[in-house]
Computed example of a mutant assay.
Amino acid sequence: MTTATTDERTLARLQREHGPALFHFLLGLTFGDRQRAEDLLQETLVRAWQHPEAFDAPYDSMRPWLFTVARRLAIDARRSRQARPTEVSDAVLESAPAHDDTADSAVHALDVREAVSTLSPEHRAVLVQIYFRGLSVGETAQALGIPAGTVKSRSYYALRLLSRNLPGYSSRSSRLSSASRDTASATST
């Protein structure tokens, strides 16, 4: 095995003698997955090529060494697949909702910013406290120094004005409006 041709001949003989038995062994370890079994067989033969000292071992056949290497490779491959998240098929990806484009999000943000700028300072202050700072109606009332009922009515009317000033967003803003009413009624009780 001092030349490359000897290595190639030795590996070819190794594959002829042990390849079919090794393949069937790996086929059982991969639960009938022929592609994986073939890949593992090739990897086993590469390992044999990388470790020429295995050919000089004191035993009569390379088969036990090859089967041990193949079994360990199959175990490692299985562990690797289990540690990795499951692959998603195209059907799942097609049914997943598409995320908005970044450019669309920027345009929407500018539209909302422009619509908010048309609100009175009082209405804007209420929306900032409730939606941007996440305060409850009671906390907003305390922060702004106004009654809770005023906070509720200002948020309601501010959202109505926003829905009028945001063309194409009326269904979204009506959901926001009903959500703000639900939030307001839940926090006032």
Rank of each mutant, 00 (worst) to 15 (best):
T2Q: 14
T5G: 01
T5D: 15
T5M: 09
T5V: 09
T6K: 13
T6P: 00
T6M: 13
D7K: 12
E8R: 08
R9T: 11
R9E: 14
L11Y: 02
R13H: 11
R13M: 02
R16T: 11
E17N: 12
G19K: 08
P20T: 12
L22G: 03
F25K: 01
F25E: 07
G28I: 00
G28V: 06
D33L: 14
R34V: 07
A37K: 03
E38P: 02
Q42M: 10
E43V: 10
L45V: 01
L45G: 04
V46Q: 07
R47I: 01
A48G: 03
W49I: 00
H51Q: 13
H51S: 14
H51A: 11
P58M: 09
D60H: 12
S61Y: 09
S61I: 01
M62G: 00
M62W: 04
M62K: 02
R63K: 04
R63A: 14
P64Q: 12
P64Y: 02
W65H: 07
F67M: 09
V69K: 02
L73Y: 05
L73A: 10
L73M: 09
A77W: 02
R79G: 06
R79D: 04
S80D: 08
Q82N: 09
A83S: 05
P85W: 15
P85D: 12
T86Y: 02
S89A: 13
D90T: 09
D90N: 10
A91R: 08
A91D: 10
E94N: 12
S95R: 14
A103W: 10
V107H: 08
H108K: 08
H108A: 05
L110A: 15
L110H: 13
D111R: 14
R113S: 15
A115R: 03
A115V: 08
S117N: 01
S117M: 04
S117D: 05
T118H: 02
T118M: 08
L119M: 10
E122Y: 13
H123K: 13
L127A: 01
L127I: 11
I130M: 12
I130K: 01
Y131L: 06
F132P: 00
G134P: 01
L135P: 03
L135C: 07
V137T: 06
V137G: 04
V137C: 08
V137H: 04
G138V: 14
A141V: 02
Q142V: 11
Q142T: 12
A143Y: 00
A143M: 03
L144C: 03
L144G: 05
G145R: 06
P147R: 04
P147H: 00
G149W: 07
V151T: 02
S153E: 09
S153N: 09
S153W: 07
Y156R: 06
A158C: 04
A158N: 05
L159T: 02
L159S: 07
R160L: 06
L161V: 08
L162R: 06
S163K: 14
R164D: 15
N165A: 15
N165W: 11
G168M: 09
G168Y: 04
S171T: 15
S171W: 00
S173P: 00
R175Q: 10
S177V: 06
S178A: 05
R181C: 01
A184I: 03
A186Y: 06
T189F: 02
